[in-house]
């Protein structure tokens, strides 16, 4: 990947409605937090997409390594006791 020369990178999270979780929308370049918020507003919320924005410097995101996927995310289907399949659904419960 070419070196990024356009200011710092920030991740943008948008809440579409009060009470709902903030969803990752994308990223923006900006010199600091105020400009990051402005740029995020210009790029991601001009059409009523949200009522609140979070921005955070991308460098603070710690990501898992794809090479570790087997170790981290194998659902271990052979270990049936890990999955809650032995419970009887109580009568009347729609979601559990």
């Amino acid at each position: 990947m070419a070196t990024d020369t356009q200011l710092d990178l920030w991740e943008v999270f948008i809440q579409s409605k009060a009470g709902l979780p903030y969803m990752h929308a994308g990223s923006v370049h900006a010199s600091d937090e105020k400009m990051a918020l402005q740029n995020a507003r210009d790029i991601y919320t001009r059409r009523g997409e949200g009522t609140s924005i979070w921005v955070m410097p991308s460098k603070y995101i710690v990501a898992s390594n794809p090479d570790d996927n087997d170790m981290l995310f194998d659902p271990s289907n052979d270990k049936i006791y890990r999955h809650p399949t032995f419970y009887v659904m109580p009568e009347g419960a729609k979601n559990i």
């Binding site: 356009q6 200011l7 923006v28 370049h29 900006a30 402005q38 740029n39 210009d42 790029i43 001009r46």
Partner: peptide, 11 residues
Amino acid sequence: PILEEDLALTN
């Protein structure tokens, strides 16, 4: 000058 500013000015 950058994509973000392009959008800001056209907005």
